[in-house]
Write a protein that binds this DNA or RNA. Structure first.
Lengths: 130, 130
DNA sequence: CAGCATCCACTACGATACTG
DNA sequence: CAGTATCGTAGTGGATGCTG
């Protein structure tokens, strides 16, 4: 993911892409964004539905992250000008691509749940001797 | 990743595992942790080497995240009681499992770089008409 | 219902300085 | 060299209230 070496003509492009990549990574590699992606899955959900699916998330964080995801073209936002208003969110193709990797992370979590739990107790306890 | 329904006998265990999973997810789904995992890869690195590999990270964030990763059994920390001290970090099996998913995320970033970039400019600009 | 704005508590983070 | 501690700031995120 890093492009050092060479200051040639095309190097600037590489550096630009690199910094963009890091920016995207920073946007996307946060708890709420990933949980939203995961919650959406292949469904289409309304704002309020998402709010209950991703439990623990506040109104504010949800809007904020949805805007960010929309800006990056990962979710599509469809507004129905009815009353009361109805807004639906769906993953785009890019979003579904990311979702696949989040799925992998969830699987990983399940797989190593026990390993991690015991590692934690070892670490947290007075660890008498070696 | 969610276990609703039923309040039966084994339900408590499921809820415990669930909250643990969410805890792990929160720990791990953050920018620095993932970048450290990625930087380590299959190598063994010293603290100072990691510091330069994960550029932009502060001394403090690095120690903090390394402790967290160690606590969760994702990295192994080996201390050589020499002078000056030498501390090496390596991914454990669990860590390498996670690394695979981070790799996938990086690949994804590269794949959709252009898509995302254009989505951004569409979003950021005055968007004249539809 | 969805979203924006405001306020405020809290913590995350960087800078700095001190130990083994 | 690696780590801990302290401190100040800037940002995060929750609660609340107002709009279409």
């Amino acid at each position: 993911m890093v492009s050092k070496q060479f200051d040639g003509p095309a190097a600037a492009d590489l550096r630009r892409a690199d910094s963009l990549a890091r920016e995207i990574f920073s946007d996307v590699a946060n708890k709420w964004a990933l949980l939203i992606i995961e919650a959406l899955g292949d469904r289409t959900l309304r704002f309020s539905e998402l709010r209950t699916q991703v439990q623990g998330i506040s109104h504010k964080m949800l809007t904020q992250n949805l805007r960010m995801l929309e800006r990056n073209g990962l979710v599509e936002r469809r507004v129905y000008p009815t009353v009361p208003p109805r807004v639906e969110y769906t993953l785009t193709e890019a979003g579904r691509g990311l979702q696949a990797t989040v799925d992998a992370m969830c699987d990983w979590t399940q797989r190593f749940l026990n390993h991690i739990e015991s590692a934690r107790t070892h670490f947290d306890n007075p660890e008498r001797l070696s």
